[in-house]
């Protein structure tokens, strides 16, 4: 794949854990690639698979949904609801021909800034290897 391909990746981050972890990455002056655009939600349980399909349709090369670890949800088990939905969504994405590396559901607690950095680096590398999703070209086929 071309070296100058800079994927754009959307992150849906739960306010209490993952968003806080992203903040912590900042306050700890960690570094991660600038390709991740965060949309804050109060809970990963708010994330509707429709948004993820919409993101891919608009040109996302990857989507990351990040929530609290099971058992740690600020809303008891919103993250479990996310897990259920994303499990089914993954099957559907596969049928749509979207490689599994492009979509991840990760548990990132407020103290795991380093985990976010690791996940971000991994995802970026994998997606760079895959190349762009090229949704617009697919659309031009009708």
């Amino acid at each position: 794949m071309s070296q100058d391909f800079e994927p754009r990746i959307v992150v849906f981050a739960c306010n209490w854990c993952s968003y806080a972890a992203l903040d912590l990455a900042g306050t700890s002056r960690m570094k991660y690639p600038p390709n991740f655009l965060v949309i804050r939600v109060m809970c990963s349980g708010r994330v509707d698979p429709q948004f993820i399909l919409e993101a891919f349709r608009r040109g996302a090369d990857g989507v990351l949904v990040a929530g609290c670890h099971p058992g740690d949800c600020h809303y008891i088990e919103g993250n479990i609801k996310a897990l259920r939905r994303m499990t089914l969504l993954k099957k559907v994405l596969k049928e749509f021909g979207i490689e599994e590396e492009r979509f991840r559901l990760e548990w990132i607690s407020a103290s795991e800034a380093d985990k976010f950095v690791r996940v971000a680096n991994e995802m970026l590398e994998e997606i760079k290897r895959l190349g762009p999703l090229r949704i617009e070209e697919a659309y031009q086929h009708g």
Binding site: Q50, F51, L83, R84, R85, T87
Partner: peptide
């Protein structure tokens, strides 16, 4: 609704009453 199938997945998966990854899968 933005995407019928997406919404259908979202609603249906939500009510599958398990909490562990294996059981949900």
């Amino acid at each position: 609704v933005i995407d019928y199938g997406g919404k259908a997945i979202s609603y249906f998966a939500s009510i599958v009453d398990y909490t562990s990854e294996e059981e949900i899968e």
